[in-house]
Design a binder for these strands. Structure first.
Length: 853
RNA sequence: GGGCGCUUAGCUCAGUGGAAGAGCGCCGCCCUUACAAGGCGGAGGUCGUAGGUUCGAGCCCUACAGCGCCCACCA
C-alpha cells in the first residue's frame, strides 16, 4: 500500500478538515435498514440549550461518544441522535431577560408581531413588555434556534459522532405529539388524573412543582413559643412554631397518642391566639414528642405533614396563603372561619393581609408580643426549608387543581425495573432505590407556565360557565399535537370557547420532565414509525449524570414501564460532575464555571477528549488542563510515530522474527483486555491499557527494530519488522480512534482507505502472526534496553554512545527469551557484545566503550 | 438520622488476596537519522485510624474518623 505521508505533520487544523469530511461523507449516518440486534441505540441526553455552554457538556458527552465509536467499530450500527431541551422554564427566563418581555396570557395575540425582527429594549429603566402567550412562544422559538446552533457547533468541534440529521427538540412537533399521546393513554388507563389537592407551590413562578424538583436548603429561622388558651379554663397550652403567620390557618393541635403530657387533653378544645378560633386537640403518630413542646399546630397548610394530618384526621381547610405568596384577607365569621371574637380576629388578620410570609411573620410576632401570647424572645435556629430547585423563596403548600401521574402505586414494580437495569457503576442504583422508596406523592405534572407542551384536553362548561374537570374532552390521536387554547374540540366551534354551555381549553403545560421522560420514544419515532421504533426500542444505553437519577432516569423508567411494559434501555452509564481545579462543584452563582471553547482551542479536541475519557464513570473529576496537554502530546506522538513507520521504505514481508511475533502477541493481549473493558463500559480502563502499550511500542519496540527495518540485516528481517510495525500501528490507531478521533483519522488517511471510524475494531485474529509467541521476548529485550539507557543516563552521556559490553545476569530459561532479540538489542543500544552470567536476580552490567572513539 | 462513595507519592488517580503502581509536577541527563511544544532516566509512599480473618491484606470483615454526594428531616 502506498503511503502518502506529509513531511511536517501537525495536529493543528484537523478539526476543520475532518469535521467537514465526516459531514460530507456521512461517516456517522445511521443506517435504518439494520435489525435490532445489529444496532446500538443511545438515548442521548438533550442538553438544556438555554443554559450556557459548560465544560460539563464536553466531559460527559465525550464519555458517551467514546462508547459510541467503540460500538460502531465493533460492527454495530450506532443510533446516536441529538436532542435539544428547549422546553420549559429556563427558556422562559432567558427570553424574559434577553428581550425584556414577560408573558401575560391575558394579552390578546398580536398577529402583526414580528418575532424575527424584535429588538430587545436595552434601556436601563425599561419595563418588561407584556406579550401574549403565543407571541411569547414565538420569541422562545427564535432564541432556542440560536442557542441550539451554539451547542451544535461545540459538539461538532468536539467530534461527537452523532448523526446530525437526527435531531429533535423537546418543544418540537414530534415531542409534543409523543408527550400528548402518552398523556392521553395514561388518562385513558386512569394513571393520569386531575385533582384539586394541596400541592407544593412556588409563589414567584406561580406554579405547582413536583417532589422531584424540590430541594432542601438550610435557613435561619425563629422558633416562637405561643400560648393557646384552653377551653376548660385550666390555663394555656404552649406550642412552638417557625411559622406564626399561619396561626389564622390553624385548625387543630396534635400530640403523639402515647405522650402522657397531653393524652388527657386529646378531645378538648383550645383557642388560637389573636384569632380566638376554637380548634381541637388531637392525637396522631406523626407528632414527635421530642420536637418543640411535643404538641404541634396543624395549619392548612404549613408543610406536607400538615397535609397528612389534615387528610387523616378529617380536618376542615382554612386557607390564608394565596398563590402569589401573600396572606389572604380575613373571612372570620363566614365560610366556616369560626371565632369567639370575629371583630378582633378580623382586625388581626387585616394587619397581615397582603404581606408576604416573611413580613407577616415579623408583624404577627409583634402582635403576639403585645397580646402576651408570645413567651419570651423567639429563638434563632437553623432549619431546613423546601425550595423549588430553581426558586428563590420557600415553597408553600397551596390547594389547586393539577394533573397527576400515579407513581406511588407502582413503587414495587419500579424498584424491580431498577434491579433489571444494568448500572455503570453499579452502586448508583442505590440512589434510584432510595428515591423510589422515599416517594411520598404522585407526580404533579401540570405547570402554570407558558413555554411547554399543553395538556391536550378541553372541559365542557355548564350553564353557569363552570368547567367539568372530571370528564375532559380529548382529541383523536391523529390530531396531535394540539393546543387547546387555539384548537377546538371535536363537535364545537371557536365561538363556543369560554361561554356557558361551550368549552374551555386546559391552560396548563406539562412539567418539562413529562416530555424528557419520553426521549427514547421521541427519538425512536414511537407510533409514528413503527418499523423504526422496533429497530431501536428498548435502547441499549442511557448516559446521564447522577444528580438527575431521581428525575430523568426515574421518570423515563416510569414512562417506559407504563407505555411499553419494558425498560427503556438495558444499560445506564452515570457520569460524574466536572469540578473546578479546587474540586468544588461548578455553579453559576460561584462564578467558577469554565466554558469549553477556549479549552478546545488551546488543547485541541483530541486533548480535551483525552482528559474527559481518562475519568471513570461516576467519578467526579476536577478540570485538569495538564491532562489535556498530555492528551495533546499523545496525539502528536501518534502523528510522529506513524510518520516514521510509514516513511520507511522496506517492503513488509512475512513476520518471521521472534521479537516481532512477541510484540504482536503482547498487542493481541492488549486488544483482548481493552475490548473486555469496553464491553464493561469501562472506557477509562481501555484507554489506560491502550495508551500503556502505545508508549511501550514507541519507546521500546520501534527503537529495537529501527535498524533492522532500515535493512541492517537484510530484506527478510526488514520485511518482518515492517509488517509487524504496520500491523501494530494499524491496531493502535484503531484502538485510539474512539478517544482521539481527529489525529487517528488524519494518520489513517495517509495509508488506508475509508474512515478509521468505520474500520473494524482490532481482533486477536488479525494478529495471528503473534499467536503462540512468547510475550516475554519483547518484554525482556525492552527491560535490558531500559537498563542500558539507565546506565548511560547515570553516566550523563548520550543514549547513542557506544557500549563495549553488556552482561546480563539471569537464569538460563529467562535468558533464553532474550536470545532471539540480541541482535536488535545490540543495534538499538549500540552494544558491541552481550554476555550472560547465571543468577537468580535479573541485573544488567554495562561497560561503556571509550568515548570519543 | 438512613444510605452510597471516597481516603494509596507534592497533585490527579489505577491497583481484581500473592514482590506498592501510572501520569503530571519536581530533579538530572540527552540536540539520538519520527518527535526539543521532544526523548531518556531518577528521587519520592507507615496505602485514613484501630482491631480481626488469613500462611499472606492496599484489597476481605468489624468499629471509628474525615471528605463528598443521595435520601429523610419546616412544630
Amino acid at each position: 500500500m502506498e503511503a502518502s505521508v506529509p513531511d511536517k505533520p501537525s495536529v493543528d487544523g484537523l478539526e476543520e478538515k475532518w469535521g467537514a469530511r465526516w459531514d460530507a461523507d456521512g461517516t456517522y449516518r445511521f443506517d435504518r435498514s439494520k435489525t435490532r440486534e445489529e444496532i446500538f441505540a443511545i438515548d442521548t441526553p438533550p442538553p438544556t440549550v438555554s443554559g450556557s455552554l459548560h465544560v460539563g457538556h464536553v466531559f460527559s458527552y465525550t464519555q458517551t461518544d467514546v462508547m459510541a465509536r467503540y460500538q460502531r467499530m465493533s460492527g454495530k450500527e450506532v443510533f446516536y441522535p441529538m436532542g435539544w431541551d428547549d422546553n420549559g422554564l429556563p427558556t422562559e427566563r432567558r427570553v424574559q431577560n434577553y428581550f425584556g418581555v414577560s408573558c401575560d396570557p391575558s394579552v390578546p395575540y398580536d398577529p402583526a408581531f414580528d418575532a424575527a425582527a424584535f429588538e430587545p429594549d436595552t434601556g436601563k429603566d425599561a419595563k418588561p413588555i407584556p406579550l401574549s402567550r403565543k407571541n411569547f412562544i414565538e420569541l422562545c422559538n427564535r432564541l432556542t434556534v440560536e442557542d441550539e446552533k451554539a451547542f451544535e457547533e461545540l459538539f461538532r468541534h468536539l467530534s461527537l459522532s452523532v448523526d446530525w440529521e437526527m435531531t429533535y427538540t423537546t418543544i418540537g412537533d414530534r415531542s409534543r405529539r409523543v408527550s400528548q399521546r402518552a398523556f392521553l393513554r395514561l388518562l385513558d388507563s386512569g394513571v393520569a388524573y386531575t385533582a384539586e389537592a394541596p400541592t407544593m407551590w412556588d409563589v414567584d413562578f406561580r406554579t405547582a412543582v413536583a417532589q422531584a424538583e424540590i430541594e432542601d436548603r438550610e435557613q435561619e429561622g425563629l422558633y416562637h413559643r405561643i400560648t393557646f388558651e384552653r377551653e376548660d379554663g385550666a390555663g394555656a397550652l404552649e406550642i412552638e412554631t417557625s411559622r406564626p403567620e399561619l396561626i389564622p390557618a390553624c385548625v387543630a393541635l396534635v400530640a403523639h397518642p402515647d405522650d402522657d403530657r397531653y393524652t388527657k387533653l386529646v378531645g378538648t378544645r383550645v383557642f388560637t391566639p389573636l384569632f380566638d378560633a376554637p380548634v381541637p386537640v388531637l392525637a396522631h403518630e406523626l407528632a414527635d414528642p421530642e420536637k418543640g413542646t411535643g404538641i404541634a399546630m396543624i395549619c392548612t397548610f404549613g408543610d406536607v405533614t400538615d397535609v397528612v394530618w389534615w387528610k387523616e384526621l378529617g380536618l376542615p381547610a382554612r386557607v390564608v396563603m394565596q398563590k402569589d405568596g401573600t396572606i389572604a384577607p380575613p373571612r372570620w365569621g363566614r365560610d366556616g372561619w369560626e371565632s369567639r371574637d370575629v371583630e378582633a380576629a378580623t382586625a388581626a388578620q387585616n394587619e397581615l393581609s397582603g404581606l408576604y410570609a416573611k413580613k407577616a411573620r415579623r408583624r404577627i410576632a409583634e402582635l403576639l408580643a403585645e397580646s402576651g401570647d408570645l413567651q419570651g424572645e423567639p429563638e434563632q435556629v437553623r432549619h431546613v426549608v423546601k425550595f423549588y430547585e430553581k426558586g428563590d423563596r420557600p415553597l408553600e403548600v397551596i390547594t389547586s387543581r393539577q394533573w397527576f401521574v400515579s407513581t406511588l402505586r407502582f413503587r414495587d414494580e419500579l424498584l424491580a425495573r431498577g434491579r433489571e437495569l444494568r448500572w455503570h457503576p453499579p452502586h448508583m442504583r442505590a440512589r434510584y432505590e432510595s428515591w423510589v422508596e422515599g416517594l411520598n406523592a404522585d407526580w404533579a405534572v401540570s405547570r402554570q407556565r407558558f413555554f411547554g407542551v399543553p395538556f391536550p384536553v378541553w372541559y365542557r362548561l355548564d350553564d353557569q360557565g363552570v368547567a367539568d374537570h372530571e370528564h375532559p374532552l380529548v382529541p383523536d390521536e391523529d390530531r396531535l399535537p394540539v393546543d387547546p387554547l387555539t384548537d377546538v374540540p371535536d363537535g364545537y366551534t371557536q365561538e363556543q370557547r369560554g361561554v356557558p354551555g361551550g368549552f374551555a381549553g386546559d391552560p396548563d403545560v406539562m412539567d418539562t420532565w413529562a416530555t424528557s421522560s419520553l426521549t427514547p420514544q421521541i427519538a425512536a419515532h414511537w407510533e409514528d414509525d413503527l418499523d423504526l421504533f422496533e429497530r431501536l426500542f428498548p435502547m441499549d444505553l442511557r448516559p446521564q449524570s447522577h444528580e438527575i437519577i431521581r428525575t430523568w432516569l426515574f421518570y423515563t423508567v416510569l414512562r417506559a414501564h407504563l407505555e411499553n411494559d419494558s425498560l427503556p434501555w438495558t444499560d445506564v452509564a452515570i457520569s460524574g460532575w466536572v469540578l473546578d481545579p479546587d474540586r468544588k462543584k461548578m455553579s453559576k452563582s460561584k462564578g467558577n464555571v469554565v466554558t469549553p471553547m477556549p479549552l478546545l482551542d488551546q488543547h485541541g479536541a483530541d486533548g480535551v477528549r483525552y482528559w474527559a475519557a481518562s475519568a471513570r464513570l461516576g467519578v467526579d473529576t476536577a478540570i485538569d488542563e495538564q491532562q489535556m496537554k498530555v492528551g495533546r502530546r499523545l496525539a502528536i506522538k501518534a502523528l510522529n510515530v506513524s510518520k516514521f513507520v510509514l516513511k520507511m521504505e522496506a517492503a513488509p514481508g512475512a513476520v518471521t522474527e521472534v521479537i516481532d511475533r512477541s510484540m504482536l502477541c503482547t498487542l493481541a493481549d492488549v486488544v483482548e483486555t481493552a475490548t473486555v473493558a469496553f464491553e464493561n463500559y469501562d472506557h477509562a480502563r481501555a484507554l489506560e491499557i491502550i495508551e500503556r502499550f502505545f508508549w511501550d511500542f514507541c519507546d521500546d519496540y520501534v527503537e529495537l527494530v529501527k535498524s533492522r527495518a532500515y535493512g541492517s540485516r537484510g530484506e527478510g528481517a526488514a520485511g518482518s519488522a515492517m509488517a509487524a510495525l504496520r500491523m501494530a500501528l494499524s491496531s493502535l490507531l484503531r484502538m485510539l480512534a474512539p478517544f482521539l478521533p481527529y489525529v487517528t483519522e488524519e494518520v489513517w488517511s495517509w495509508w488506508q482507505e475509508g474512515s478509521v471510524h468505520r474500520a473494524p475494531w482490532p481482533s486477536v485474529g488479525e494478529l495471528e502472526a503473534g499467536a503462540e509467541a512468547d510475550p516475554g521476548v519483547f518484554a525482556s529485550a525492552a527491560s535490558v534496553l531500559t537498563e542500558v539507557r539507565k546506565h548511560k543516563a547515570a553516566q550523563k552521556i548520550s543514549l547513542r554512545a557506544r557500549v563495549e559490553r553488556v552482561v546480563v545476569r539471569d537464569t538460563p530459561q529467562r535468558f533464553g527469551l532474550l536470545e532471539p532479540a540480541l541482535e536488535d538489542l545490540q543495534e538499538a543500544g549500540n552494544i558491541a557484545v552481550i554476555d550472560r552470567t547465571d543468577g537468580e536476580d535479573f541485573a544488567v552490567e554495562t561497560v561503556l566503550a571509550p568515548q570519543g572513539a
